[in-house]
């Protein structure tokens, strides 16, 4: 049975969110244990359910700075299986290359996850269903979305920590562009750009409501991201059950102001918390992990001095 989308609530009527920051030195670390311990703290309702992990696959990436690393994907999959999920799928619809097979071969996904036939779904070519959008921030009124995505009980956004030359940053909210099928809208999914990237991000996330986010910040990308930027070692994994709060925290870790990032501040009106005082921090603190990312000249305004730090509850 498809999951019920959580209600759209303004910040004043939603409880505080929790975001965990974990320092991780490399992809060779024991990610499975770290993620299991961290995600367990959220008591997620995944037992007996189908969980869909949505990584960010972009293209060939020899330096490992563009795509969500397969080690983190495999550890996430193992975590949700250990938490009792009946099935954990990995699904993405890359926006910049229709040869998804070439991308998953180039990132060696099979070597980390095992046989892919029953595990991986190419959302670009999945069967689709008309979905009326719940918000009208952009001029989009409906989207044809993959049935596998709509049928999943629990959706996890699994992006890479990167800057983005149009949106400022690309994190768990922007990662949801990948669920819009290329087989209906092309490569790139240009209809989303024409509708306004920032506004379309709100509309898509309000429609499909990712339940959880795990951001691969072990190695990220700074500067001219999301493809042509520079490798940035950040050494963190950031996760939580409010994607807006996760992205706001990621922005702070990147030394950026979330309230200046249009799609985060727009999403904060209905989907989650951006304000630091509404985010309870678990694990490491932003001060301990903040590692400013270089941004393009056009995005220097994001780098202003951040506001108050969130409280640490651990």
């Amino acid at each position: 049975m498809p999951r019920t989308a959580p209600p759209l609530l303004p910040p004043f009527s939603r409880p505080p969110s929790r975001v965990a920051i974990r320092r991780v030195t490399s992809y060779q670390s024991d990610l499975s244990t770290l993620l299991y311990e961290t995600v367990s703290e959220f008591a997620l309702p995944v037992r007996g359910r189908t969980v869909l992990l949505k990584p960010n696959f972009v293209g060939s990436d020899p330096l490992g700075m563009m795509n969500t690393h397969p080690a983190l994907i495999a550890a996430s999959r193992e975590t949700f299986l250990r938490l009792g999920a009946e099935r954990v799928l990995i699904a993405d619809g890359p926006a910049m290359d229709r040869d998804t097979r070439a991308i998953i071969e180039s990132v060696h996904l099979r070597e980390y996850v095992g046989p892919l036939s029953r595990v991986f779904v190419d959302l670009n070519v999945d069967d689709v269903e008309r979905t009326v959008l719940r918000t009208h921030a952009s001029r989009l009124r409906e989207l044809y979305l993959p049935k596998t995505l709509l049928a999943a009980d629990f959706l996890v956004s699994l992006p890479k920590l990167k800057t983005h030359h149009w949106a400022g940053v690309t994190l768990s909210l922007k990662n949801m562009f990948g669920v819009v099928p290329g087989s209906c809208y092309g490569w790139p999914k240009n209809i989303l750009h024409w509708a306004g990237i920032d506004r379309a991000i709100l509309d898509i996330n309000a429609a499909i409501r990712p339940n959880f986010a795990i951001v691969d910040g072990i190695i990220g990308m700074e500067g001219n991201g999301p493809i042509q930027g520079t490798l940035k070692r950040c050494g963190t994994v950031i996760c939580g059950d409010d994607p807006v709060a996760v992205d706001a925290t990621c922005a702070r870790v990147m030394g950026l102001r979330p309230d200046k990032i249009k799609h985060i501040s727009r999403a904060a009106t209905l989907l989650g918390h951006m304000q630091a005082e509404k985010i309870q921090q678990i694990g490491d603190t932003i001060d301990q992990t903040c590692n400013p990312f270089a941004v393009l000249e056009a995005f220097q305004y994001l780098r202003q001095k951040p506001a108050a730090r969130p409280s640490n509850v651990n």
């Binding site: 910049m96 040869d99 490569w187 001219n224």
Partner: peptide
């Protein structure tokens, strides 16, 4: 050719097969 722009912020895009 690629699925995006051939050059953004002065950096050349990578071609793709399709």
């Amino acid at each position: 050719w690629n699925c995006g722009n051939p050059m953004v912020y002065g950096v050349a895009g990578e071609p793709q097969v399709t």
